[in-house]
Amino acid sequence: MASQGTKRSYEQMETDGERQNATEIRASVGKMIDGIGRFYIQMCTELKLSDYEGRLIQNSLTIERMVLSAFDERRNKYLEEHPSAGKDPKKTGGPIYKRVDRKWMRELVLYDKEEIRRIWRQANNGDDATAGLTHMMIWHSNLNDTTYQRTRALVRTGMDPRMCSLMQGSTLPRRSGAAGAAVKGVGTMVMELIRMIKRGINDRNFWRGENGRKTRSAYERMCNILKGKFQTAAQRAMMDQVRESRNPGNAEIEDLIFLARSALILRGSVAHKSCLPACVYGPAVASGYDFEKEGYSLVGIDPFKLLQNSQVYSLIRPNENPAHKSQLVWMACNSAAFEDLRVLSFIRGTKVSPRGKLSTRGVQIASNENMDAMESSTLELRSRYWAIRTRSGGNTNQQRASAGQISVQPAFSVQRNLPFDKPTIMAAFTGNTEGRTSDMRAEIIRMMEGAKPEEMSFQGRGVFELSDERAANPIVPSFDMSNEGSYFFGDNAEEYDN
């Protein structure tokens, strides 16, 4: 993207840094990872977990959730003011799984939030270390993106479920800051804005008074975040219109849905970061690795190297396929839920299948599930090659597409044709070009129609051997075009429920 120079890199967003050079960025990201790792080690000690239990991804998720809940100030305040039966607002906890007599047992633990905050700050040299908290939120978000298709949420806001490739980060909490905003897809931002506008339509006082002023500035800020994701002048001009509207209503909703559809071809720039579970960072720190000293990046080879040398386990339900569970977590670790499966298959070195073909449910185990038949197995999170994460949407291309997802959002900077089903997408653009945004709409449609099938995206960008740390010898991959490109292809993934 041309304006790259004016933006802070995501590592800076990730670490609240002012302008830093590459070495400083690597050190501050490393410091953040160190903090998460030290916190995780301490929690495993508190909970008396064995090494194996500490490497269980379900335990990692519970521990991450506990610290996120302990620092969720708004919710904590709300819980104190609106006490609900049987919930102690000062405590947080969740299921911890232990191996007892050759069987997995679930144990519900409860801790004072104050105590968890103390352990977290102690692991982070006394700081609140917001960057580390956001990092864990993005890992949870990436896992949700890989596990669930947001059909219901899309339909509720009037969008087409086939636009799911635009929904990265749709389950990120509001408090995820600049680093969170960077990884949100165009569809996620559109959905947040539509929800806001709908509230304004239904509630006369939404934009009024002292609160209304705050609401208005939040609305304009979200519009600017979305505008910054678009790469064409016409899309940005249309966002200006939406932002400046005196009284946002149905016309703005129409414009936003139009823009979301246009992003299936004229893709937005959305950041991709490899955020790993805390149970990967903990053992690495415990083994003596100093992330701050060595430096770390979320968008280069580092996460690949770390996963190459990590042992992570997962509980497996009786009829689940461990290899499929591994694929789910591998995609989440690489922030690749909406990437082209052919690119992923090449990088991973084994075939990556669409969601609907995987015999696996989510990673988390519900409290009512029976533990008797639970097994555990090693997650295979290694890769054959590594590639640089991208934040450009890439230019655009036609490809055989599917009944489910009709476009992709690249996660890796790797040369390819970008699949999208042009006739299906263009069919949504018939007729409606009147109104105050008509010239911009016409211009956007013209650009979409001009998108050429034979153009290559990320020209000359390749993948790298894991021994090639400096990215000196790019390998331009070859793809098996007979395979499906979309992950949520004609899909039956479970729906995400809060």
Score class of each variant (00 low, 15 high):
1 M>W: 12
15 T>D: 02
20 Q>S: 15
24 E>N: 02
28 S>N: 14
32 M>F: 09
36 I>G: 08
42 Q>L: 03
44 C>D: 01
49 L>T: 14
49 L>W: 09
53 E>H: 06
55 R>W: 05
63 I>S: 05
65 R>M: 05
66 M>I: 12
67 V>R: 05
70 A>G: 15
73 E>R: 04
73 E>H: 05
77 K>D: 00
81 E>T: 09
82 H>M: 14
82 H>S: 12
84 S>Q: 05
89 P>S: 14
90 K>M: 13
100 V>G: 10
102 R>T: 04
103 K>D: 03
103 K>H: 14
105 M>Q: 10
106 R>I: 09
116 I>Q: 03
134 T>E: 08
138 I>R: 01
143 L>M: 11
145 D>L: 05
155 V>C: 07
155 V>D: 09
155 V>T: 13
158 G>L: 13
173 P>I: 03
173 P>H: 12
175 R>Y: 05
176 S>G: 14
181 A>R: 08
189 M>Q: 14
191 M>Y: 06
194 I>Y: 03
195 R>K: 12
203 D>A: 09
209 G>P: 03
209 G>T: 05
212 G>M: 14
239 M>D: 08
241 Q>W: 06
245 S>A: 14
247 N>Y: 06
248 P>K: 03
248 P>N: 01
251 A>D: 05
256 L>M: 13
256 L>Y: 01
257 I>K: 02
257 I>S: 01
261 R>P: 03
266 L>I: 15
273 K>C: 01
276 L>Y: 02
278 A>N: 14
285 V>L: 12
285 V>H: 15
292 E>C: 04
299 V>D: 05
300 G>S: 14
305 K>D: 02
315 L>H: 04
323 A>T: 08
326 S>D: 10
331 M>V: 08
336 A>W: 00
340 D>Q: 03
341 L>Q: 03
342 R>L: 05
348 R>T: 12
349 G>M: 07
356 G>M: 09
366 A>P: 06
380 E>S: 02
381 L>R: 01
383 S>Y: 04
384 R>T: 05
388 I>K: 13
402 S>E: 09
402 S>R: 15
407 S>C: 15
411 A>V: 14
415 Q>G: 11
416 R>I: 04
416 R>P: 03
424 T>W: 09
434 E>V: 12
448 M>T: 14
453 P>W: 14
454 E>S: 09
455 E>D: 12
465 E>H: 00
486 S>W: 02
490 G>N: 06
492 N>Y: 03
495 E>K: 14
498 N>C: 02
